[in-house]
Computed example of a mutant assay.
Amino acid sequence: MKVTVRESDTFFYYSQLFDIPLALILASNRELDAEQLQPEQQVSIPGYVKHAVKIGPGDSLWRIATQRQLPLDALLLMNPKLDPYHLNAGDSVSIPIRMTKSIIKGNQAYDYQTMIKDINRLSAVYPFIRQQTVGQSVLGKKIPEIQIGQGQKQLHINGAFHAREWITTPVIMTFLNDYLLSLTNRRTLRGLSMAPFYETTTLSIVPMVNVDGVDLVIHGADAAEERKADVLKMNGGQSDFSQWKANIHGVDLNDQFPAGWDIEQQRREQSPGPADYPGAHPLSEPEAKAIAELTKQRDFERVIAFHTQGEEFYWGFEKKEPPEAENIATEFARVSGYKPIQYVDSYAGYKDWFINEWRKPGFTVELGREKNPVPLSQFAEIYQKALGIFLANFYM
């Protein structure tokens, strides 16, 4: 929501008027001079949307403000051209509506366009988040990254490395929305105030790594566009792509990283297909390369890659994980009920590479249970268990 600056208005005044933390308002208006607002400038108020209501016979701004429990000056600010003493029945008044419910509807088939639409909606309501494109897929789709927070502690999470594991994306997006709601409504998540984490932490999120593959699983071969014939051939002529893990090239993106890649290459599939082909060489695929470049550019303290399924997580690699990784793993297990596994006979994954290169904590979290793709009927349970890990990631 935007309001028009009046003479002598300040960001601090807007913070008090709309009960929004000053840091969020400042971050939502990075392009403006925080020390000297100019009349007629437009200021974004995060966490609010505008709503138009019709003026009834005998209505006044005072009555509308009282009925809706709004500060009168908020109505005056939002309706600068309205004469408060001469309202005409049938005219419209803009009122501020605080967002208190989630925009994200995670319990649905969650494809690339749904994610992009939701990111744009969140950015419009919560402009203190930042987004950028970190790379492009084989089919040229932009891979978005979202950043939130102002702290020096850099954390990274991602989802949907594997196409059939797309449920990880709405889980991540639901948490992001809950985090935003907690900040703008000054409410806790599981008893934790989130404002201190916003100030101390910068969270990087890539909700969907394998953007082409997710659309292939959800929409079928037509989603592969000019590569439709290729994916049908790799899938044995079958139109059911529900078990597809790879990208559109038929490469497993979580077998693409230079951390024992040669070991995986020798024992995995030797040609492109729905699953388990590590590619011709490490980081051959644009999606894996995009995540690798992002990681190299940032000083991430910790990374978490969300996968499915098994209700467990992996936290070691060739004894190169730092000592503090065990404490973090213990807490992740406590708050989620998931089983911590230090070592597994697997190489070339994103968390393997992160641990190998930086000797910092990295985690692969397997959400849900039974089989892939995990059914949407598990979504609510998955989210509640994952929420503990999302929150512990901040305070550990």
Rank of each mutant, 00 (worst) to 15 (best):
R268T: 13
G106E: 06
G159A: 08
V303E: 06
M194W: 05
T330S: 07
D222R: 10
M99H: 02
R68M: 11
Y13H: 14
N107Y: 00
H249L: 14
V49M: 08
E321K: 02
M115L: 15
Q256I: 08
D255Q: 15
S92A: 14
A89M: 11
A288D: 09
E324Y: 03
D111E: 03
G316K: 05
H156R: 13
G388T: 07
V5E: 00
K360M: 09
I263T: 13
E225P: 00
K50A: 12
G191C: 05
G368Y: 04
R6H: 09
N29T: 03
G149C: 07
N185F: 05
Q150T: 14
R190P: 04
K105I: 12
V217M: 02
I157H: 12
Y198A: 07
P375M: 02
G159T: 06
L139C: 11
F300Y: 15
V303H: 04
L391I: 13
Q69A: 14
V43T: 05
Q132P: 00
N393K: 02
P361C: 13
T201C: 11
R268Q: 09
I143Q: 03
N393P: 01
L155C: 11
L37D: 00
L176H: 10
I97F: 06
F300T: 12
A392L: 08
Y395M: 04
A275F: 03
F197D: 13
N107R: 15
L26S: 06
S193E: 15
Q67K: 14
E287F: 10
E301Y: 12
E199P: 05
I103E: 09
A52F: 07
Y48D: 01
R298C: 02
P127E: 02
G388A: 05
N372G: 00
V3P: 01
I45D: 00
A52M: 06
K233P: 00
L387V: 05
M194G: 09
A305W: 11
Y338N: 06
G388H: 05
E199T: 10
V303C: 04
K371I: 05
D118M: 04
I328M: 12
Q378C: 03
Q147E: 13
K141D: 10
Q67T: 02
F379I: 12
D240E: 01
F306Y: 15
I248P: 05
S94Y: 12
F197M: 11
P57Y: 07
L216W: 03
L387M: 10
R98D: 01
T330N: 12
Q42R: 14
Q266E: 13
R6S: 04
N356P: 01
L77V: 02
S242Y: 01
L82T: 13
A288E: 11
G191A: 05
F161D: 08
N254S: 03
L155R: 11
Q243R: 15
H219L: 08
N372F: 00
A275L: 02
F394V: 06
D262T: 13
G47Q: 06
G349A: 14
V365S: 04
I55R: 10
K142E: 15
L387F: 00
K360G: 09
I20M: 08
F354I: 07
P127V: 03
L76D: 00
I119A: 03
V138L: 14
G316S: 11
T4V: 15
Y110L: 08
I328W: 02
K105V: 13
P323Y: 10
